[in-house]
């Protein structure tokens, strides 16, 4: 009996939002630090907006590589930043972690969780689509290595 193929673990992408002060520096620093403390490979970009404007090929590669978790800003913005670079993200295989609105602990818990929770908007997004307040419970001090 053959088993279904195990999906690859999601790639990890961190956006430093370098050219604006809209993400708390404390959240950015804490997320980046934990990523560096883990043994996980990841991509870090200075600014997704800049890459999108430049239609940077790395966005296409990331979008085509399968499941991905992206620590950045609003999922709707991330979705269309990639689309603007001709690099549409896979709707069912992308989880965006919003560092503008979620706490460091929430972002890290989702980032290091083995579970992928796709959350790119499909169709018109209204207030009814807003996520319930995150009740992440993973132990962020012990991310998987």
């Amino acid at each position: 009996m053959s088993h279904p193929p195990v999906p690859p673990p999601p790639a990890l992408l961190y956006c430093h939002c370098q050219y604006a002060q809209v993400v708390s520096p404390e959240v950015k620093a804490a997320v980046l630090k934990k990523l560096c403390e883990s043994d996980l490979p990841f991509e870090a970009v200075p600014d997704l907006c800049e890459l999108s404007a430049r239609r940077d090929p790395s966005l296409k590669r990331l979008a085509a590589a399968g499941p991905v978790k992206i620590a950045a800003c609003f999922p709707r913005a991330v979705k269309w930043l990639f689309a603007a670079a001709d690099a549409p993200l896979p709707l069912g295989a992308t989880e965006v972690l919003n560092m503008r609105t979620r706490s460091t602990d929430e972002v890290l818990a989702s980032l290091f969780s083995p579970e992928l929770r796709p959350n790119l908007p499909e169709g018109k997004v209204t207030a009814a689509d807003a996520p319930a307040s995150a009740g992440a419970s993973a132990d962020v001090n012990h991310p998987p290595s």
């Binding site: 690859p8 673990p9 999601p10 790639a11 990890l12 430093h16 370098q18 620093a29 980046l32 630090k33 990523l35 560096c36 403390e37 043994d39 996980l40 490979p41 990841f42 991509e43 870090a44 970009v45 200075p46 600014d47 800049e50 890459l51 940077d56 790395s58 590669r61 990331l62 590589a65 399968g66």
Partner: peptide, 25 residues
């Protein structure tokens, strides 16, 4: 690792931490 990564990002460079466990570009 963090100091190097942070220094590069602050100067606007994209960085890949390569490894075997997960895909990177």
């Amino acid at each position: 690792r963090w100091a190097a990564m942070n220094a590069l990002l602050e100067r606007g460079f994209a960085v890949t931490r390569a490894g075997a466990e997960r895909p990177v570009s």
